[in-house]
Amino acid sequence: MYNSHLEAITIPANDPFADTNALASRAMDYKVAVTKMRSVGLDIGDADTIVGIGTKNHTYLPAMNPYFRFDNIEFDRLFSMALAREWSRDDAEPRRGLLVSGDSGAGKTTHLRQRHAYQGIPCIEVTMRADMEPTELLYTRSIVGGDTTIEYGAGALAAMYGIPLIINEIDAAKPSTLLGLNEFFDSGTVTIVETGEVIHAKRGFQVHATCNSKFLDDPTDAFAGTRGQNTSVLRRFFSMVYESPSVDQEAEFIQSLYPDLDKGIVQKKAQFVVALREAGKTATKIGNQSVQLSRTFCRSMVIDWLYLESTFGYLLSRGISPGQYALGPVLTNLMPDHEKEAVNALYDSILT
């Protein structure tokens, strides 16, 4: 879904980005303009912000989700700052994106994706792997009939077109891999050694990254596959911890999906969701046992749970709780028995 608000925004005669916009001649290039956040449906302030012009059918433009709730003000404040800085910084200044740490399913990547979608700014996503080398993010090479063939990777494409790059699970990388990318994070420069080609990133390129750990060593071993990283990489980002929604924020989200649902029921559902998330972080007293759940309850799972609850509404006449039944396919069916019992006990204590 494209943000239709963007269609009403035009480039003024006294275009402050005339030089950049004049270079937008290829299919993947895009033009930019300045507008107020509220004018593109972002009810998070009335400051100026950058938007993409003519990107409706752009290959890398994320789809807008009109149900997404922009309820993490710290994230939105930092994102707005980083975006504005990229378009106002001196050419000699390094680029800076966000490094967003937080619980799995908290909404880190989705929030990044939706800010770009609402503002019509294309972005490229890639997920880091433990075996990925620095050059693989930038380009790959192969030999065909004795000739070396170069294919641009996500990093090189983002730099060429002035598109933000989002690296998910960045803490899964080998420390040496990220060290080898420090200059790329700063300048967006890609040097293809095999051909001698040098790509200098266009304005608009910046790297955002997400991770579940706090990027350095994790003494709890709670994030399988992650590794402590060199602190020099941290200097290439503005960092933050993305907190999960509060009970009130979760209630507002649920009410937005089901406006006719009783507010008291909505509040209890929100309390249940938040309690589940807390039980996924630390051992929690539930009923007669102390349990730490092996899975969390992210926003997409909340949506699925509520949808299935309404779908299975007919079970109520058979003496079966639709809400409790819906937890099975969304969360508990693949849990150990003691965790499943704990979730059901938590549901009973809050929602029945």
Rank of each mutant, 00 (worst) to 15 (best):
M1Q: 12
S4E: 15
S4L: 11
S4V: 14
I9F: 07
I11T: 10
P12G: 08
N14M: 08
P16N: 13
F17I: 01
D19M: 06
T20G: 04
M28C: 04
D29E: 06
D29M: 03
K31N: 05
K31C: 08
V32H: 01
V32K: 00
T35A: 09
K36V: 06
R38H: 12
S39C: 03
L42N: 03
I44K: 02
G45T: 13
D48A: 08
T49E: 05
T49F: 14
T49S: 10
G52P: 03
I53P: 07
N57A: 15
L61K: 01
P66Q: 07
Y67I: 07
F70M: 11
N72T: 13
F75S: 02
F79W: 15
M81Q: 06
S88A: 15
D90C: 02
D91A: 15
E93Y: 10
R95T: 08
R95S: 13
R96P: 01
G97W: 09
V100L: 08
S101F: 11
G102K: 02
G102A: 11
S104W: 05
G107C: 04
G120L: 01
E125Q: 14
T127F: 08
E133K: 14
E133I: 02
T135A: 14
L138H: 10
R141A: 15
I143L: 04
D147W: 00
T148W: 01
T149K: 14
G153L: 05
A154H: 11
L157Q: 12
M160F: 03
Y161K: 00
I167F: 10
D171C: 01
A172F: 08
S176T: 15
F185D: 02
V190Y: 05
V190S: 06
V190W: 04
T191V: 14
I192H: 05
E194R: 02
E194K: 04
G196Y: 12
G196S: 10
I199K: 09
A201T: 09
F205K: 00
Q206A: 11
V207G: 01
A209K: 00
F215K: 05
D217F: 06
A222L: 11
F223Q: 10
G225C: 06
G228A: 11
N230M: 09
R236C: 02
F237P: 03
S239K: 01
M240W: 07
M240F: 07
V241P: 00
E243P: 00
P245L: 05
V247T: 08
Q249G: 02
F253K: 00
F253N: 01
Y258V: 03
D260T: 15
L261D: 09
L261R: 15
Q267P: 00
Q267R: 14
K268L: 14
A270M: 05
Q271Y: 08
G280M: 07
K285F: 08
I286R: 03
G287C: 08
Q292A: 13
L293T: 10
L293K: 00
S294H: 13
S294Q: 14
R295Y: 13
S300W: 03
L306A: 11
L306D: 10
E309K: 12
Y314Q: 07
L315N: 08
G319P: 07
I320H: 02
L327K: 07
G328I: 04
V330P: 07
P336A: 09
H338A: 10
H338Q: 09
E339C: 05
K340E: 13
A342W: 01
V343D: 11
N344I: 00
N344C: 05
Y347D: 06
S349L: 01
S349I: 05
